[in-house]
């Protein structure tokens, strides 16, 4: 009997690429689509993003009924490469590259008096239903919070490695299992009467959320993209603290529960520290050792802004027209 971690089940397909991936994972088919199919697919669409997500999840927890050997299946890796090339090329085309790392970071360090992102909406006007949707969407990342970033550790050295490891240590509970951030998020989900099973909301998640998660996996898994991973991590940590304050206020206003509030309050304080360590030690340390990676760091910051903006537009757009942002009701 299997008594280990909960294994997510395979989702339903969202088109030809994801259907072919699912069939291959189930060993119902021995072949995958040619690279040309990925090149013609919408790089941010449901189909490509789900196919890519399926490939990446083999490196995290895999799926029930899928052979663990699939993680290093050569044909699947070649297919994943075609999906990644399409996604990465789109990000490089669409994310406006900042002039340099310092100006990109400086821009993130300015706080608008009244912004218009998801956290502002949830704080001021959001409903409990919208908060639950938001948590279900974000659970695709937060139930593996900081995992994609751990892959960069062997690719960093000296100051950058020490700083990154220290922040990851905090993310992973500073030695205490009950403080692991992914666990705190599961506690939040329980307060919101959501299912805390890993991957439970994959079928419901919008492609914009899949892209948010896929960007991290892409940058984490490729050593050549270590600079972009560091830029991405800096962007996430810098923008997190003020966002989390507003989300904590939203949880408080809506009476979401103590664990729901705690998750965001913990991040207000933790990420105010993390962004300092990431800028002073990780980014500065990396660029001191490998100055040629500056453009990659800037790209990581820009690509993160792009996928987050798309996610924001989708959620706020759906809610404005009184639709769910999810593909299936909770």
């Amino acid at each position: 009997m299997h008594t280990g971690l909960y294994e997510p089940t395979l989702p339903t397909d969202r088109g030809e690429l994801s259907a072919a991936t699912l069939a291959y994972l189930r060993r119902a088919s021995g072949s995958l689509p040619p690279a040309g199919d990925a090149e013609r697919s919408d790089p941010y669409g449901d189909d490509l993003q789900l196919a890519l997500y399926l490939c990446y999840e083999l490196h995290y927890r895999g799926f029930a009924g899928v052979d663990d050997e699939m993680e290093w299946d050569a044909a699947l890796l070649a297919f994943r490469r075609a999906l990644e090339d399409r996604f990465l090329a789109a990000l490089r085309d669409d994310a406006p590259l900042p002039a340099d790392v310092d100006s990109a970071l400086a821009e993130l360090l300015v706080e608008p008096v009244q912004g218009d992102g998801i956290s502002y909406h949830l704080r001021d006007d959001g409903t409990l239903g919208q908060v639950r949707e938001y948590a279900a969407q974000r659970s695709l990342y937060h139930l593996k919070e900081a995992d994609p970033h751990a892959w960069v550790l062997p690719r960093l050295h000296g100051r950058a490695k020490a700083g990154m490891a220290a922040v990851e240590y905090d993310e992973f509970g500073a030695g205490r299992g009950e403080r692991v951030h992914a666990r705190l998020f599961a506690d939040l989900m329980r307060d919101l009467s959501l299912d805390t099973g890993y991957g439970r909301y994959l079928d419901a998640a919008c492609p914009q959320m899949l892209a948010v998660s896929n960007l991290m996996s892409l940058l984490g898994l490729h050593r050549r993209l270590r600079g972009a991973l560091v830029g991405h991590f800096a962007a996430v940590e810098i923008t997190s603290s003020p966002n989390c304050r507003r989300l904590a206020q939203a949880m408080e206003r809506l009476g979401a529960g103590p664990a729901a509030e705690h998750f965001y309050r913990e991040h207000v304080e933790a990420d105010a520290v993390h962004e300092q360590v990431v800028r002073h030690e990780v980014v500065a340390g990396l660029l001191e050792a490998e100055p040629q990676l500056a453009a990659d760091v800037a790209f990581g910051i820009a690509a993160t802004g792009l996928v987050e903006d798309r996610f924001t537009e989708h959620l706020l757009g759906s809610w404005r027209s009184e639709r769910s942002s999810l593909r299936h009701a909770l």
């Binding site: 706080e111 608008p112 008096v113 603290s241 207000v268 304080e269 105010a272 520290v273």
Partner: peptide, 16 residues
């Protein structure tokens, strides 16, 4: 608002 710990309130703010 979480004094004595930083909550990033020192950041420069813009009107837009």
């Amino acid at each position: 608002r979480t004094y004595p710990w930083c909550d990033t309130s020192h950041r420069r703010r813009t009107a837009d």
